[in-house]
């Protein structure tokens, strides 16, 4: 784990159990092997089990052409060579996301990736959504949080199957974690899958999970300029739910300005004003979900 940024691996839990198989997005560390941190320019005063003496240390005024692995030098030929790679850094995640997406389309599953900052009311809105759907739509929920099973427990109490992914120190869900969670959830044919990402408006923007849409939840207790401060997320989302709208009369929050700011970074973003407390906009949100489920099932039937 990185003490500087809070990111790290090896602490991811799905439903309280360690992430199965090899988490191929990360380099596998040997048992007992620890990650070491070094600030650039820091000397080796802290303990290391290995030697950091650079290979070029002995004589800086000597260029030794015979020191390479080949032990010789051919004129014009360097010991080293260039390797063209041209590979997307997130290709591995994207491969997993494609696998998830193929699974979703084969089984008519409409998957949504819900993203927001912490405290925007994602879980409460999900509970409201589940209650309002009232069993009319088969659904499952994947909950992402750094720690605790609290959110999944709330979803299960609302009557929907839910699986908690604890990312440990990780700041986002990735497609491999979601793929593993899907296997454990026993997703129903032609169902709805709601993935509640870790509360974070930065990192989840870059990680495709295979979802049909990212839905960003933005509450009126935040600032109107949030879309400008976190443009990547608002850009990546297809729908914005402006949440906690029942509080508007009590706040100095300009909802029109908030929507205008969101459209500045994403001209095509759709906006629904909702309140999980008063129920405002929930019918429109459910309508949007139902339309998505319908077209996902229709697309599946076309390919059969």
């Amino acid at each position: 784990m990185c003490m500087t940024c809070g990111c790290g691996k090896g602490q991811t839990l799905i439903g309280g159990r360690a992430l199965g198989g090899s988490h191929a997005l990360t380099r596998q560390r040997k048992p007992g092997e620890e990650m070491h941190y070094r600030v650039r320019g820091e000397d080796a005063t802290h303990a290391h089990p290995h030697d950091h003496t650079p290979a070029h240390s002995p004589a800086h005024d000597t260029i030794d052409f015979g020191a390479g692995p080949a032990g010789a030098h051919a004129p014009g030929m360097s010991q080293s060579r260039m390797v063209k790679i041209e590979r997307d850094i997130l290709a591995k995640n994207n491969d997993y996301a494609d696998q998830n997406r193929r699974y979703f389309s084969r089984h008519g599953i409409f998957a949504l990736n819900l993203v927001s900052s912490p405290g925007s009311g994602k879980t409460t809105l999900l509970v409201k959504t589940i209650t309002a759907l009232n069993g009319a739509q088969s659904l499952a929920v994947i909950e992402g949080d750094q720690q605790t099973d609290n959110d999944a427990a709330r979803i299960r109490a609302a009557g929907a199957p839910a699986l908690q992914i604890n990312t440990g120190k990780g700041c986002h869900l990735d497609a491999h974690m979601v793929g593993q969670a899907m296997q454990r959830l026993d997703l129903k044919e032609d169902s709805l899958l709601l993935i509640e990402n870790v509360g974070n408006l930065v990192c989840p923007a870059g990680f495709d999970l295979g979802e049909a849409h990212k839905v960003v939840i933005f509450s009126v207790t935040e600032g109107e300029d949030k879309p400008l401060k976190y443009p990547d997320m608002f850009r990546a989302a297809d729908l914005m739910l402006l949440n906690k709208c029942d509080l508007l009369p009590h706040l100095d929050f300009d909802a029109d300005l908030a929507v205008e700011n969101a459209r500045r970074v994403n001209p095509t973003i759709r906006v629904i004003r909702v309140s999980a407390t008063s129920g405002e906009g929930v019918a429109e949100w459910l309508g949007w979900i139902k339309a998505g489920c319908h077209s996902t099932v229709a697309a599946k039937q076309k390919t059969l």
Partner: peptide, 18 residues
């Protein structure tokens, strides 16, 4: 702060190619 994941993906690409 997903730079850690990105750095790990870069290393993995390098190791795969190696």
């Amino acid at each position: 702060m997903h730079e850690m994941s990105i750095a790990e993906s870069v290393l993995q690409i390098i190791e795969d190619k190696a």
